[in-house]
């Protein structure tokens, strides 16, 4: 099989300054409970890189493009932003490698006007290709009214909107991430393409149902190691949803994630579509 140059649709700001965001309380709790890091010891989720260093890592692992999401993440407990990555910072970090690193804007539903303005600027001035939204800490389901201005703006600008679905590994409520909540927005915005991220687990069937039902709903399998991919999701990805599924790492090791994906018992054609072609088509990449 030929080497497929992957497109990673789900990754995060990578500079030394940006990776400090991982120090937030929510991630350190996750490190203790999920990665069994001893209490009192802080965990390093990512070390800072320059754009050229990132591209070198991509080259080594066979990645053509990586999406960097200027994510806003909200603390459910403290009611404040714990991630406040700005589009301008992402742009400054990636601008020397425009063919390889793609900017994705964020959204803060508690600051609607300001967010819409930043999205518009990011798309028109910086060439960003979409928006990624993390709803869980905000405790807003995907059909919440505070998200409708985001959907209208993305529809107007002709860019896809991606959002985390499934449970939250951070200490935030998970129910807002149920994939079924995209049902209404997908109907209300028929000209907008939605990307449900993170496999939707533990509601993979809802995830599959939404992407199967709606011509304008796509699904990415990022954030879970491919070897643990839900069996039904994998079967659907290899058959009726082969044109609707995208690949992403969510910041996990490029090489490992791609290797595990390539080892899945699915058709070569599916691998090519998911790793690359579907993202190129949806996000109009060259």
């Amino acid at each position: 099989m030929e080497d497929i140059k992957a497109v990673d649709v789900m990754n995060y700001p990578f500079t030394a300054k940006a990776v400090k965001a991982w120090n937030a309380r929510e991630f350190q709790i996750m490190a203790r409970t999920i990665f069994k890091v001893p209490a009192g010891k802080s965990h390093t989720f990512a070390t800072g890189r320059t754009a050229r260093e990132l591209v070198a890592d991509m080259d080594a692992a066979g990645y053509d493009k990586v999406f960097i999401c200027a994510t806003r993440m909200y603390s459910y407990r403290d009611k404040k932003l714990i991630w406040d990555h700005q589009e301008r910072d992402v742009y400054n970090a990636i601008k020397e490698c425009p063919d390889r690193i793609i900017g994705i804007a964020g959204y803060n539903p508690f600051k609607i006007e300001e967010s819409l303005h930043k999205i518009e600027l990011a798309v028109k001035r910086y060439g960003f290709k979409g928006v990624y939204f993390h709803s869980l800490g905000f405790n807003l389901p995907l059909n919440d009214k505070k998200l409708y201005p985001l959907y209208a703006k993305c529809q107007e600008l002709g860019i896809p909107v991606a959002m985390q679905t499934g449970h939250s590994l951070e200490v935030m409520p998970s129910d807002p991430g149920r994939p079924i909540y995209v049902d209404e927005p997908a109907l209300d915005f028929p000209n907008l393409n939605f990307v449900l991220s993170h496999t939707g687990w533990p509601w993979c069937e809802e995830f599959v149902a939404m992407a199967w039902k709606h011509p304008n709903v796509y699904a990415d399998i990022s954030a879970h190691m491919p070897k643990y991919l839900d069996q039904s999701l994998m079967r659907n990805m290899d058959s009726r949803m082969q044109d609707k599924v995208l690949f992403g790492t969510n910041g996990m090791d490029f090489k490992l994630v791609k290797e595990q994906f390539l080892a899945l018992p699915i058709k070569d054609e599916t691998k090519r579509k998911v790793l690359r072609d579907n993202a190129v088509k949806l996000y109009k990449l060259s």
């Binding site: 609607i112 919440d144 009214k145 505070k146 409708y148 959907y151 209404e184 209300d188």
Partner: peptide, 11 residues
């Protein structure tokens, strides 16, 4: 206050 009204207010 319906969600479908919010795009109007934003615009």
């Amino acid at each position: 206050t319906d969600a479908r009204m919010y795009p109007l207010y934003a615009k």
